[in-house]
Amino acid sequence: MILPPPDESSQRTIKRSRVLSYVLVAVAAVMLSLRPELLGDPQAQPWHALLHVWRIVVGLLLGVAALAVQVIVGVRWRQGLRKSADD
């Protein structure tokens, strides 16, 4: 099956979704690369380990969100193609 190129509206949506995904991945990379010293001294602050866990969880969730944006836009675009082919 050969897919036709997206129309102008779809191209804008795809471009915006890519930009959003890149931003989410960049923020996730920043979250995952934070140095432990930035969160304070682990000996003086017992909640230090919890901050590290949340940093990792937030970073991974942002990465999954970037992937989800691309999947959702792709699925909607293909559904639009199917609807226009049925008409």
Rank of each mutant, 00 (worst) to 15 (best):
M1G: 15
I2A: 15
I2S: 15
I2Q: 11
L3A: 11
P4C: 09
P5Q: 10
E8S: 14
Q11T: 12
Q11Y: 05
T13I: 13
T13G: 09
I14N: 12
K15G: 11
R16Y: 05
R16P: 05
S17F: 03
R18L: 13
R18S: 08
V19W: 09
V19E: 13
L20F: 04
V23I: 15
V25L: 15
A28G: 15
M31I: 04
M31N: 10
L32Y: 00
S33A: 12
L34I: 08
L34C: 08
E37M: 08
E37W: 09
G40T: 00
P42G: 02
P42W: 00
P42H: 03
Q43G: 07
Q45S: 12
P46Y: 01
P46Q: 06
W47V: 02
L50P: 00
L51F: 02
H52W: 05
V53F: 04
W54C: 05
R55K: 12
I56Y: 03
V57Q: 02
V58D: 05
G59S: 09
G59A: 02
L61T: 03
L62A: 12
L62R: 07
V64H: 06
V64M: 11
V64C: 10
A65M: 07
L67Y: 05
V69A: 07
V71W: 05
V71L: 12
I72H: 07
I72S: 14
V73N: 04
V73L: 03
V73F: 02
V73H: 02
V75T: 06
R76N: 09
W77M: 13
Q79C: 09
G80D: 09
L81W: 05
L81D: 07
L81M: 15
L81C: 11
D86P: 06
D87A: 15
